[in-house]
Computed example of a mutant assay.
Amino acid sequence: MTYPFLSSSIIRSSPSMETYQSVFVALHLMLLSLTSSSAVKHNNMSDLSTLLTIKAWVMGHDPGNIVSTNWTTDASFCTWMGVSCSRRRQRVTSLNISSTPLYSIIPPHIANLSFLSELVLSNNGLVGPLPESLARLPRLKYLQLDSNQLSGSIPLAFFNMSSLTELILASNNITGTLPSNDTSFRPLFPEYLYIFENQLTGSIPSSLFLAPTLRELSLDENQLSGDIPPEIGNMKHLTLLYLGDNNLTGTIPI
């Protein structure tokens, strides 16, 4: 199965603890060097500080020095590569630094960009778990983390985001199960859900096909098992469905 909108994955070993320590030393030095003359060019110091933290995090893992060279305080951070801002408040609304070798965990400080509505970190060689802190972004609509080496299960909080409309976690090493309806939690599934080429196990919860807004679903190339929920026949807006290369049984209603 080919998905032209997704990139190929990168495999690389995890960075050492010494690397992380050097990252934060570099961040401290950058913040100290930020003079008042350059700071006045930035309308929001919180977003600036967060972006500089991300810059320091990737220093040493950016062979082309793309981020290190482009993200400088000589210009507004709204003009930096991969950064988009709202017009009125000049807050960061989109961060897209895909296909930049980072070979680290997802920088946790991204969760401080409270106006972020789009986050794209595809094909970056990212490792480690999916940070639950991303689910605290109140305006996040589009989250794309495909083609990395991310592992662990999907945080339950990812399915409790009323703002999220598209979730792309394809081509990683994600394990665990999909959330199901129970007495304590009712999952909120996005309109577009792509988690193919991972290691998901368990069955497909019937609650997935009770989501009225679900339009596209790709769960192929996992280790899912059990019956295909008959509720799938009630999906009026579903236009794309991939369930192949699993251990599922049953039929899909026409």
Rank of each mutant, 00 (worst) to 15 (best):
L130A: 09
S122R: 15
S147R: 05
F209G: 01
A211L: 02
I204F: 07
P205K: 06
D146I: 04
L208W: 00
T201I: 15
F115I: 00
N198G: 07
L113D: 04
F196R: 10
S104D: 10
L208V: 04
P179T: 09
N198C: 07
N198T: 01
N112Q: 13
L178R: 03
E132C: 03
S104Y: 02
R186A: 12
S180Y: 12
L140G: 00
L116S: 01
L167T: 01
R136E: 12
L188K: 12
A170T: 07
F115V: 00
Q144K: 15
Q149C: 12
F158T: 00
N172V: 13
T100H: 13
E132I: 06
R136A: 12
L193T: 07
G202F: 10
P138T: 06
F115A: 14
S203C: 11
T175L: 10
R139D: 01
M161V: 05
T177M: 14
S99T: 10
E132M: 08
F209I: 04
L119G: 03
A111I: 03
S203L: 07
T175K: 14
Q199W: 05
P155I: 09
T100F: 14
I110T: 00
S151H: 10
P101G: 08
P107Q: 05
D182L: 01
S147H: 03
I110C: 02
N160E: 11
N123E: 10
T100S: 13
N123V: 01
F115S: 15
L140M: 05
L119R: 01
S104A: 13
S180Q: 11
N198I: 04
L116R: 02
P179V: 07
N198F: 04
S117T: 13
G152N: 10
S206H: 08
I154H: 04
G176I: 09
P108Q: 11
N112D: 13
R136P: 00
S180H: 13
F189H: 02
P155N: 09
L121S: 05
L121F: 12
P107K: 05
L188W: 00
P190H: 05
V127I: 15
P190E: 02
L210E: 12
L145C: 09
V127Q: 13
V127S: 12
L156R: 15
G125V: 12
L113V: 03
L188N: 06
